[in-house]
């Protein structure tokens, strides 16, 4: 009995080892990203660590040089359109998936999320031949559609997960009180699933904003996105501007992650308050 609460010495050693591993792995995960930050402020023209002096010239270059401004603009255009189309279509599809039981539902779900499963090079090459055949390689149109089809599964999964716990009697209540379907959707359904829709939209934007392989095959220099430009930079000449660009991408990622985390905690809190 006396032993049940105590920790054995061997167990203590084991725990110490375990937390050492934890520390090492977390360092391994985060260190490479932190290394980029000082590098982006180096005064040297090459990326050596540690930097010999400090300068903000690479950020000045990033935010003034067309070689980086145009890709940044392209990424925002493509990401914006992708987010809107993927979120609207993905949310509608998720609503359809939970609305009724019918044969082939599992197959439809599998088809909708298949773009997540197919290796990205196969998708990129397949889209390249398809859009080349249509004569629209090197247009925003093809790049946006390519990113949309990659991003939509994230919206479908996120929103249909939220709808699983959705109380459908609320819809019937809304209808029985005389609400027309559109009215009920905008005043009952949408407010309830909005956090999931926003989360899906963030996923969709992140997918497009970070995507490089499809852009590699579908974009000409005119539609070059930020990741595409970084990729070219890594292969041609690693200048510290790439580190500055990467830092910007990391910051955008952190903002998106923070928003997601906020939404998740919020929904957990709301669920915690309400008895199920």
């Amino acid at each position: 009995m006396s032993m049940s609460g105590a920790v054995l010495p061997s167990q203590r050693h084991f725990r110490r080892l375990l937390f050492l591993v934890l520390g090492l792995v977390l360092t391994f995960l985060i260190l490479p990203l932190f290394i980029i930050l000082p590098l982006s402020f180096t005064d040297s023209r090459i990326l050596t660590f540690p930097p010999t002096g400090w300068s903000d010239q690479w950020y000045v270059t990033f935010f003034t040089d067309d070689a980086w401004l145009v890709p940044l603009k392209n990424s925002l255009i493509v990401g914006g359109f992708t987010t809107v189309i993927a979120t609207v279509l993905g949310t509608l599809a998720a609503l359809g998936l939970v609305r009724a039981e019918f044969r082939g539902k599992a197959l439809i779900m599998a088809l909708l999320i298949s773009p997540m499963v197919v290796p990205i090079v196969i998708t990129a090459v397949g889209l390249f031949f398809f859009y080349a055949w249509l004569g629209v390689v090197g247009t925003y149109f093809s790049l946006i559609l390519g990113h949309t089809v990659l991003a939509m599964p994230f919206v479908v999964i996120t929103v249909s997960a939220a709808l699983q716990g959705f109380d459908r009697t609320l819809l019937r209540a809304g209808s029985s009180l005389g609400g027309r379907p559109f009215f009920v959707f905008f005043h009952v359904t949408l407010p309830l699933i909005l956090p999931a829709v926003v989360a899906g939209a963030i996923f969709a934007f992140a997918t497009s904003f970070d995507e490089v392989v499809v852009a590699l095959f579908l974009a000409t220099p005119e539609q070059r996105t930020l990741p595409r430009q970084i990729f070219a930079g890594i292969r041609e000449n690693i200048s510290p501007t790439i580190a500055a660009a990467a830092t910007v991408l990391i910051l955008v990622s952190i903002v998106m992650m923070g928003t997601m985390e906020y939404l998740r905690r919020r929904s957990e809190r709301l669920r915690g308050v309400r008895p199920s």
Binding site: I30, P32, L33, D210, I230, L249, I250, S253, I254, M257
Partner: peptide, 14 residues
């Protein structure tokens, strides 16, 4: 989560 959210390209470059 930070690495999870950061683009593969950026991490590879790092």
């Amino acid at each position: 989560m930070i690495p999870f959210w950061t683009s593969i390209l950026v991490r590879t470059m790092a």
